[in-house]
Design a protein around this nucleic acid. Sequence first.
DNA 1: GATTAATTTAAACGAGTGTTTAAATTAACT
DNA 2: AGTTAATTTAAACACTCGTTTAAATTAATC
Lengths: 213, 213
Amino acid sequence: MASRTDTKTRILDAAEKLFAERGFSETSLRLITSKAEVNLASVNYHFGSKKELIRAVLARYLDVFMPSASIEINRLHLAPEHASLNEIFSALIKPLLELNKVRNGGTIIFLQLLGRGYIESQGHLRWFITTHYGEHLATFVKAVAASAPHIPQAEMFWRLHFTLGTIVFTMASADALNEIAAADYGEHNNTEAIIRKVIPYMAAGVAVPVLTN
Amino acid sequence: MASRTDTKTRILDAAEKLFAERGFSETSLRLITSKAEVNLASVNYHFGSKKELIRAVLARYLDVFMPSASIEINRLHLAPEHASLNEIFSALIKPLLELNKVRNGGTIIFLQLLGRGYIESQGHLRWFITTHYGEHLATFVKAVAASAPHIPQAEMFWRLHFTLGTIVFTMASADALNEIAAADYGEHNNTEAIIRKVIPYMAAGVAVPVLTN
DNA sequence: GATTAATTTAAACGAGTGTTTAAATTAACT
DNA sequence: AGTTAATTTAAACACTCGTTTAAATTAATC
């Protein structure tokens, strides 16, 4: 194959960091390849195009996270008594934090990439995720719905997207927020601490009774 | 001054729409000026640079929204009994919807711009907002804090940013979400309906008791 | 109406983008 | 070893970008 580290891997490693930090379109292939210390043309040689590189970067995380998340959710689901929303969301913590073992800072990189992908480039990534990992997503949605049966399906649709926005935006600005929190309150939170802060917020929001007047 | 509509206004009108739809860096000055039917160079003539155009687009909304929001919040705050979080958030509905009278679709454009600004272009817009409208923001934060005194200040900091993420992400993808909701559940929500859906979610999240073990 | 200022215009600039090409190099295989 | 395939490389291509320039036009002022 190749000497030192695989060229393909070097590109993915450099790309995911830069994509997470500055967004997809703000990151040029020249910046990626110079950080990765590989030739510019190797991106197109190994991945075909920048768009496919973006998908490859995300897929490397999704392929680890999604099956792992499904397993955790199903483990809860098989329990006789229904799990609480807090438990369901918390079940995702382990799969998320395991991404840190895959790569340094993997957890926050993954969540930031997810957010960037959802907001930038309307559609093509959303389509990629739902068609490739739709079953895993369905597992999660079903668990949440069963855990909050008093919320109508259409309402739950909106609330789960509120939740996605909450976590994704939080992680996209996690570094900046952490700086402010450290300066103003002397707090130093790692990724896990922030996740543990946001889960009760999301669980409460998803489960709050629908107002009827 | 000028014939037909003011050139400056034509630029702002075209720019805000495109910025909200596709983001700042994805929107070229050439696209803006062609939609506005003005010359390319007029942007730099009237605004100096693209960065200043972005700030001008946002300022046009913030100058209307922020004072109006402060008035509504203060009206609540002067009431003898403390307002609920739901009431505080709901107090922002009127100022938000009044932006629709300023310009067609003004409400959602404003919220989308806010989100784009927060996620793209790290810092320069965040700085612009906090230094120019800091007092109004403080009014809001104080009202929320007084309404949920059981939440420590540092925790509230995080939860308010969760809230910002929720609303901003929701609005950024409101069009796409509405399409799906219409197809899957036959729902057709306007901007106000979505805002009224998201407020209970946010209020419940902000107020949920802090876990202590 | 003449003179000055403000605005609009077309064209170019320089820098940056993703992608392609064809030659050079390295690895794999018989 | 020699031959084929895979990879790396430097250079160029074709565009798009924000910005600047200097001339043309319109508006305002005396």
